[in-house]
Design a protein around this nucleic acid. Structure first.
Ligand SMILES: [Mn+2]
Ligand SMILES: [Mn+2]
Ligand SMILES: [Zn+2]
Ligand SMILES: [Zn+2]
Lengths: 135, 135
DNA sequence: ATCTAGTTTATAATTGTTCTAAAGTGAAAA
DNA sequence: TTTTCACTTTAGAACAATTATAAACTAGAT
């Protein structure tokens, strides 16, 4: 994803392309593979990579804004930190608890044959599969 | 589960059956259906139910001790609170985000037909399915 | 250039959880 | 039994993740 697309992405979400947002967006979205992160890990990586310091509150604000805009999704992982995911399509995960690493699984790589029907008055929004790994 | 069994459960796990542990264990395990809770919710319910106050730190200690002993499992739910489960067998969950409620799904009620193989050097520990609900 | 709503920032506040260290207690040993 | 002591409970402090606050800053419309 090129810089011009980053600007489009922000503008189309009614997010002003500020210096901070562009820098974070470039870091998150200008990559080939899915990126899974916590705000803490993202903050550390941004400190290493860039010269200008971005306030932690801004990283929280921006990540939430991107999530609300549908550019990021939240992943459920054991622990008290929140994990985010640049892959916003419907997909599944391996979870390697040794190093707290998430690995994407394409939606088509898991086929569920039998599934219970939703409780009364409820509908199924989506199905998420976690494959926990060990060594 | 009767009181005598609670005492056995504690003793067999090398946990002294103190007043507090017995009270918490009775509350958690003397019921028909699975119970999903957070430490916060458990604390509130214990305050309502019982006369003698149990320190919050004791509830944390006890819940962790029960988890370590294999009497409770931890469930992954979106959010920053940790959820526990009196069902320690391999099973799945509906998750109703409207009211943050978990509902058990028996392991046999979900059949997975196709599953990717674990990454190099890793093995599959277990597979957890979450069915997110909407209204 | 001016204006203003949106944004960033440092810092405080809040929330969930763990730590600490002093007081209390279950149960084994005397 | 009484004694003893490792285990347990407890209040409160500490810590970690996140959110709120409010003042300074800025993108972009006019
Ligand atoms: Mn989580
Ligand atoms: Mn969680
Ligand atoms: Zn992913
Ligand atoms: Zn359950």
């Amino acid at each position: 994803m090129k810089k011009i697309d980053i600007l489009k992405k922000l503008r189309s979400s009614k997010l002003r392309p500020t210096k901070q947002r562009v820098e974070i967006a470039k870091f998150l979205f200008e990559r080939e593979k899915t990126f899974h992160f916590t705000v803490e890990s993202l903050n550390k990586l941004l400190i290493k990579k860039s010269t200008s310091k971005i306030a932690l509150a801004t990283i929280y604000n921006t990540v939430h804004a991107f999530k609300t805009a549908g550019h990021l999704s939240e992943v459920e992982v054991r622990g008290n930190k929140t994990y985010f995911d640049t892959n916003v399509s419907n997909h599944h995960h391996f979870y390697d608890s040794e190093n707290s690493e998430l690995i994407d699984i394409d939606a088509n790589d898991i086929v569920i044959q039998k599934i219970p029907k939703a409780p009364n008055g409820k509908k199924i929004k989506n199905v998420e599969v976690f494959i926990n790994l060990k060594n």
